[in-house]
């Protein structure tokens, strides 16, 4: 098995790596690039802990090959904050105590960010269905859903503020 050379962009940075043809994108992120914020909970697309975006599309990194990333734009939890400025979702997750153990949190944040980009004013039901592929065993989801609802509300308020 000869390795494949991949040139890609991760969180805005140009990145090159060699990977095995059957390495998943998750294997590459965690084991080759030390981007361990993306978690492996199942390796079969059932838990969402490895949520990332490829060219802006929300996917499970465990269900994509590392080789596929060539020329694409990958975004992970590590790129969500801008320097020390957190994304509003990250702020709200902290404020609402929307995490207990925190291992599902990166996946939820990446998935919720993707939702708000597509639908800035989701209903509670829309949030619950969008995030149905992200398993959390600690919180019963209550505080996570509230954090996302509150973020949407606040971001909407800010957009309105800017317009006026």
């Amino acid at each position: 098995m000869s390795q494949i050379h991949v040139s890609t962009t991760i969180n805005g940075d140009p990145v090159e790596y060699l990977c095995e043809p059957d390495d998943t994108l998750l294997d590459v992120l965690r084991d080759r690039l030390s981007l361990t914020g993306t978690k492996e909970g199942c390796g079969s697309g059932d838990c969402g802990a490895c949520s990332v975006t490829i060219d802006g599309r929300l996917v499970c990194a465990c269900l994509a090959l590392g080789a596929e990333a060539d020329g694409r734009k990958i975004d992970t939890i590590e790129g969500m904050a801008e320097g020390e400025k957190l994304h509003p979702l990250q702020e709200k997750f902290l404020e609402h105590a929307a995490l207990q153990c925190g291992v599902c949190t990166p996946g939820f944040l990446v998935a919720a960010k993707s939702l708000l980009e597509k639908n800035p004013s989701p209903t509670e039901t829309e949030i619950r269905y969008w995030l149905a592929g992200n398993l959390c065993r600690c919180t019963g989801y209550d505080k996570i859903i509230r954090a996302v609802m509150d973020t949407a509300k606040e971001m909407k308020g800010k957009r309105k503020g800017k317009k006026s």
Binding site: V59, C60, L115
Partner: peptide, 8 residues
């Protein structure tokens, strides 16, 4: 599958 799976 999930939203993530539907993306692929």
């Amino acid at each position: 599958g999930s939203t993530q799976v539907q993306g692929r």
